[in-house]
């Protein structure tokens, strides 16, 4: 039997534009999701430890194949404040999803068919990054959204005290600079698609801060810590600049 109640349903909204379907691996330690986006340039990794749920009960390993497109439509009703509960029996062809809107007390129940998802499991190697920089998540989202209005990709440059996001396109160029207090092993410069950064930054509501782990010519990591877990987005670099 499996039962988990989660109070940050907005997490679903943060990943729905990257992946349409995913297996949710349910274990006694918690729920994990790891999936590549359709264009194979990004990987989403989410870990929610059992302690972040009230309650959490999982007496055997279970993989629930869930359509995030459908789940988003269900969760969208109540917004970021919704409480989401997942329940499954021993034969998980279907699972129950219970959505509770805290503001109105309204409870909605669904029986959802588990999907058979052909999903490749990717091993993510341990990486030592040249720069690991933590900045306010709202500022990061503001910068990404603002620059993306006119431009397509962004060059990240980080020095001892500042991280600079600069971008250029047909209409001209723009840049944003933020102070940080993080350690760097040296200055770093790399280019990343703004469209993806805007997608990653939809996780802003989950955490006050976001951590950018950067190195040249390896996937960049954008990480949001959530209560008892994390949402990590890896993005393949542009090479041969």
């Amino acid at each position: 039997l499996f039962h988990a109640r989660f109070e940050q349903a907005g997490l679903v909204d943060a990943i729905k534009d990257l992946i349409q379907d995913s297996d949710f691996h349910c274990r006694d330690s918690g729920i994990a999701l790891r999936n590549m986006d359709n264009s194979q340039v990004a990987v989403v990794v989410i870990l929610l430890e059992a302690g972040g749920f009230l309650p959490y009960h999982c007496d055997r390993r279970l993989n629930l194949g869930i359509s995030l497109t459908s789940l988003t439509k269900i969760v969208h009703y109540a917004g970021d404040e919704a409480t989401l509960a997942l329940k499954a029996n021993d034969n998980p062809d279907t699972f129950n999803l219970v959505l509770e809107c805290l503001q109105t007390g309204c409870i909605i129940k669904y029986d959802i068919k588990s999907r058979d998802i052909d999903q490749e499991h990717l091993e993510i190697p341990k990486t030592d990054y040249a720069a690991t920089i933590t900045i306010p998540s709202a500022e990061f989202q503001r910068i990404c959204r603002n620059l993306s209005q006119l431009l397509e990709s962004v060059a990240n440059e980080a020095s001892e005290e500042r991280i600079k996001f600069s971008s250029s396109g047909d209409i001209g160029s723009g840049s944003a600079t933020l102070r940080h207090n993080s350690d760097l092993t040296g200055p770093i410069a790399l280019t990343i698609s703004l469209k993806y950064l805007v997608n990653f930054s939809k996780a802003t509501a989950l955490s006050y801060s976001v951590t950018l782990s950067l190195s040249s010519e390896v996937p960049q990591l954008v990480e949001y810590k959530v209560e008892s877990g994390f949402a990590r987005f890896y993005f393949a670099p542009q090479i041969g600049e």
Partner: peptide, 14 residues
């Protein structure tokens, strides 16, 4: 301008 790589060039599938 660089070329966008894919994530499978860095992370191995199993």
């Amino acid at each position: 301008e660089g070329t966008q790589s894919t994530i499978t060039q860095f992370f191995e599938g199993s």
